[in-house]
């Protein structure tokens, strides 16, 4: 696991974002065990306090579950996981639309190109 952090967004927010991407992409499966806070801090080269904060926030959002002293797991709640996917799609589309609109490109032209590029990338 390697993440490039920017300097202006809270690191814990970027960690959560990273988890959401891993969930949406299917890298993390529902119910899958995730690293301990300490392991995560080590893997991502972050402060253990930051890892702790990210996990706490993700627990509150229902993205991960921690029962007693057992390792934390990704939620199995379909609704939560679907929401993560939707959130990431909407965010990406918003960025796309914003960039296209700011340079006055008609949407059908942009979509056409987007489709070509996407398929090229496969």
């Amino acid at each position: 696991m390697k993440v490039k952090f920017n300097n202006r967004d809270p690191v814990y927010v970027q960690v959560i974002r990273h988890f959401k991407e891993q969930i949406a992409s299917g890298y993390f499966e529902p119910g899958q065990e995730i690293p301990s806070r300490r392991e995560l801090a080590n893997q991502l080269k972050i402060n253990p306090n930051t890892a702790q904060r990210a996990y706490k926030e993700m627990e509150e959002q229902g993205l991960i579950l921690t029962e007693g002293n057992l390792p934390s797991r990704i939620s199995k709640d379909e609704q939560v996981l679907e929401m993560v996917r939707e959130e990431l799609i909407l965010e990406a589309v918003d960025t796309f639309v914003h960039s296209i609109r700011s340079i006055n490109i008609p949407i059908h032209e942009a979509l056409h190109l987007a489709k070509d590029k996407y398929e090229e990338g496969n």
């Binding site: 300490r38 801090a41 080590n42 253990p48």
Partner: peptide, 9 residues
């Protein structure tokens, strides 16, 4: 790296 480990925690 030491700062991300249990050596500092």
């Amino acid at each position: 790296d030491v700062f991300t480990s249990h050596l500092i925690e």
